[in-house]
Nucleic acid binder design. Structure first.
Lengths: 142, 142
DNA sequence: AAAACGGTTCAACCCGACTTGAGGTCAAAT
DNA sequence: ATTTGACCTCAAGTCGGGTTGAACCGTTTT
């Protein structure tokens, strides 16, 4: 079965052993067995860890990610679908932020944030579409 | 100039007023002026807030995002370039996570995480490339 | 004139996600 | 035989990013 102890498991998934104990405490990943009190992890557990870590790094709360893995019956499908949307928005925002930054580093201006019209327009667009649609309206219409 | 007080500014950028005070305390965004003790924000400040908020939501620490806006001289260009890379990785991971989830919700298996070979293969790939390259080697080679 | 509204300060608290430290166990290497 | 290394538990601490609450201050509506 090729079971690995906590230190090795942690190394394999790129986390600290303390984090694995913490995940266990949270009920997210339980070692498949214990040999002489020591936690032993199998493939299945490493996969869970890797999945959870990936989602966590993307800003998905651990409990939400855990629900995709463990929600009873068909419930997990709904959670998974929601997370696809969350990730979609993440990707869009990240790309928008990249456009802004890419422009900035190519910009001849001393500092785009204050001098460059293109930067300014891009940042204003970053805002539009999320909560900021009113900017052009009520206030601040130069 | 169209200055707005803190509550309106917060509403426009989709944050709480308390967060704007906190950003000020951190030295990230200072109201352009105060009128009778009250913070007043202009366009420039709203843009800073929106940029910072966007970066923060993507997992970029506030200080790092602030450095893009304020690093002296040309230093900000290097920080910006780094953040483009960070965001690139973010996008790749998010897409990988989406693939896994998309497959999962289409999968006929009771629960992909335990039953579906495709899911398993995808999660294993999530790991490869980040710290997990050794999985196929040393341990756990079934 | 008094209540409501939106602002102010400051200190304290909260939350998620861990990490750290003290004190102990056990097996293998020196 | 003892030291080293990896593990154990449990309580407490840390860090980023805020929020909350108390006590207060000016307008402006009722």
């Amino acid at each position: 079965m090729d079971l690995v102890p906590i230190g090795e498991a942690a190394r394999l998934v790129g986390m600290n052993a303390s984090a694995l104990r913490y995940y266990e405490e949270r009920g997210l990943v339980t070692p498949v067995t214990r040999s002489g009190g020591r936690r032993m992890y199998g493939r299945q557990e490493l996969r869970r860890l890797a999945f959870l870590r990936t989602m966590q790094q993307l800003g998905i709360p651990l409990d939400t990610a855990g629900a995709v893995l463990d929600a009873p019956g068909e419930a997990w499908r709904a959670t998974a679908a929601e997370q696809i949307d969350v990730l979609e928005q993440l990707v869009n925002r990240a790309k928008a932020a990249q456009w802004v930054l890419r422009h900035a580093i190519e910009c001849p201006a001393e500092h785009p944030a204050v001098e460059c019209e293109t930067w300014i327009g891009m940042v204003d667009q970053l805002l539009e579409g999320y909560t900021f649609a009113e900017l052009a309206g009520k206030h601040l219409t130069e």
